[in-house]
């Protein structure tokens, strides 16, 4: 059940350039599934900021979010500290339907701030006995986070745009190079990356998670829609029908 809560921040720390990890206390944490997001209100901002869930600790009843400073809203969010209260709508959106899938091997493909929800997903897959291979792209070495955490879950490859770490280039270059075997791929990241990955892995089963400027975040305002491949005039709402979609379901632009 979606709801609005005032939640306490347990920890707040910088984990890479302009990138922050925040752990939030919530009795609803255990209900948050990989792919879902929370919608965060900020003082002096009309619109909330959607942030995907990077992890859940069911015992401690906490969830983790990771965000990067992109504008004034995320800059404001970066100034919060442990002990502060966040105004959060949760849980928002759909999740990766992994319970309904027969998976032995999964390929995780993440780019930049699209990486956090994939960590929660990869961790859940690993716990379910799935072999996970992760290919992660970042702009530069300074922006990389969670590499060791992904390595614990399975083979992990890193690409940087400027070549300052790992393979110079894009996630697609690594996929070409390692030619991984997998039943399903799961991807989240900037739209150009999602397009490239979907194109490269055409014919494979996969799910992608989309990002868009949102209004309400709950499905009423029609701000964040994405057109459907089978009928481009029809669209789905990213906040409510997504953010997770089957890889060949929507038109990326």
């Amino acid at each position: 059940m979606i709801t609005k809560q005032l939640l306490k921040i347990n920890s707040h720390m910088q984990i890479a350039e302009d990138t922050f990890e925040v752990v939030v206390q919530s009795p609803l944490a255990k209900e948050l599934k990989p792919g879902q997001f929370v919608h965060i209100a900020l003082p002096n901002h009309m619109l909330r900021r959607p942030v995907s869930i990077a992890g859940v600790d069911t015992q401690a009843e906490t969830f983790t979010i990771i965000f990067k400073i992109f504008g004034e809203g995320t800059r404001e969010l970066s100034k919060y500290q442990a002990g502060d209260t966040l105004d959060v709508i949760l849980p928002c959106g759909t999740y990766y339907p992994i319970d309904q899938l027969e998976i032995d091997q999964a390929l995780i493909v993440g780019g930049g701030i699209g990486v956090p929800p994939l960590y929660y997903l990869a961790k859940t897959l690993k716990e379910n006995g799935v072999k996970v291979t992760s290919v992660l792209g970042f702009q530069s070495k300074d922006q990389i986070f969670y590499e060791e955490k992904f390595q614990v879950l399975g083979d992990t490859y890193i690409a940087t745009n400027d070549g300052s770490y790992g393979t110079k280039g894009f996630v697609t270059d690594i996929i070409d190079e390692i030619n991984p075997t997998f039943d399903y791929f799961f991807s989240c990241g900037p739209t150009p990356m999602l397009k490239a990955v979907s194109h490269q892995l055409e014919g494979y089963n996969g799910y992608i998670s989309l990002e868009e400027r949102m209004g309400c975040g709950v499905g009423t305002c029609y701000a964040c829609v994405v057109p459907l491949k089978q009928d481009p005039k029809q669209s789905k709402k990213i906040c409510k029908d997504g953010p997770v979609f089957s890889a060949n379901e929507v038109i990326l632009s």
Partner: peptide, 8 residues
């Protein structure tokens, strides 16, 4: 079907 995104 509305306008292209971004819409807000």
């Amino acid at each position: 079907f509305g306008n292209p995104t971004p819409r807000v």
